[in-house]
């Protein structure tokens, strides 16, 4: 069964701005699902519709086989959402907030689970402080704890690690992995693509309110990923529109300071020479040249960039 089935979901703000356009997605039960997209792609709108803080304009969603818009209460009890924006009740301590959160989901207090959550999210020593006294990272971890306190079957995390340091991020993901291994479906959005690649078994990329691709991570990196040419220069490169035009066939982009050019789909004939010569004409000789398989970040940049250039072409053409 799918944990989530989203069918032709649409959202238009103020009858003018299209945020989602016929988005259809399937999130398998028990999966660790990455929902990726550039800023403004519609990820948060999608999550806010799931969370019932934004109304959809069209479409339907089912959660574990139940219609979300018809059986809200049933679905809400099985869903935990970490909103992107930090929110905290200034009157109460983390422990009180967790107790209230659990109660509002219709569940009796469970101090053992609350203690465990506080401990796993490293909030135990701050459990009695008023939330105003917590740092940004602590408040974000508290949001994660709030989403988990009623033991949901589907956990939705909208940028849960923004502003959380590397070490804590790692421990947070270890915890999420454990929950996932125990059967919880996890849907997350993140800008840390290496983390998504490492953690998730499924991935969907959305841009400008549309789904560009949705498949297993293995399939995406196996079938969609191409081999790429990575050229490192002594100076930081800026891609002018002229450079983009000259290298158009190779989806030029800057990734981690390197110029990346897509050569071909894996297994197809390489056009290495042509790409290398064109790059030299534009930027001169590079310091290092590497050929490798694209990682998730490359695929993401290429697919979202690819779409943008299509649109630009469409507009000018």
């Amino acid at each position: 069964m799918n944990a989530l089935e989203i069918h032709k979901l649409g959202k238009m703000y103020n009858n003018t701005k299209v945020a989602l356009l016929d988005v259809s997605l399937e999130v398998p039960e028990g999966s660790f699902f990455a929902l990726l997209g550039p800023n403004g792609a519609g990820k948060s709108t999608l999550i806010n519709i799931l969370a019932d803080t934004v109304r959809p304009s069209s479409g339907s969603i089912s959660l574990l086989g139940h219609e979300l818009f018809l059986e809200r209460a049933w679905c809400k009890r099985r869903m935990g959402v970490v909103p992107q924006e930090i929110a905290f009740d200034p009157f109460f301590s983390p422990r009180e907030i967790l107790r209230f959160s659990r109660g509002m989901y219709g569940q009796k207090n469970d101090d053992t689970w609350v203690d465990e959550l506080l401990e796993r999210l490293e909030l135990t020593e701050h459990a009695h402080k008023i939330t105003r006294q917590l740092s940004g990272g602590m408040r974000r971890r508290l949001l994660v704890a709030q989403a988990l306190v009623h033991r949901p079957k589907v956990v939705i995390l909208d940028e849960p690690t923004a502003g959380v340091d590397v070490e804590l991020r790692k421990r947070l993901w270890d915890f999420m992995r454990e929950l996932n291994a125990a059967g919880t479906t996890i849907l997350l959005t993140t800008h840390y693509l290496e983390e998504a690649e490492e953690l998730c078994d499924h991935v969907a990329i959305i841009d400008q309110g549309k789904v560009i691709t949705s498949q297993s991570m293995q399939a995406l990196l196996g079938d969609v990923a191409s081999s790429s040419l990575y050229l490192r220069y002594a100076h930081t490169l800026q891609l002018s529109s002229q450079d983009r035009a000259a290298l158009a066939g190779f989806y030029p982009r800057i990734n981690q300071g390197q110029l990346c050019l897509t050569l071909n789909k894996l297994g197809e004939t390489s056009n290495f020479d042509q790409a290398y010569q064109l790059a030299r004409q534009c930027f001169g000789s590079p310091l290092t040249v590497t050929v490798g398989q694209e990682d998730l970040e490359d695929v993401f940049l290429r697919l979202t960039g690819e779409k943008k250039s299509e649109k630009q072409g469409g507009t000018t053409g």
Partner: peptide, 18 residues
């Protein structure tokens, strides 16, 4: 109003409370 300004009202909207 505090809930709206601090964005805490989303927790109430997300909860299964009619």
């Amino acid at each position: 109003i505090v809930g709206k300004i601090m964005n805490v009202h989303v927790f109430l909207l997300m909860a299964p409370i009619s």
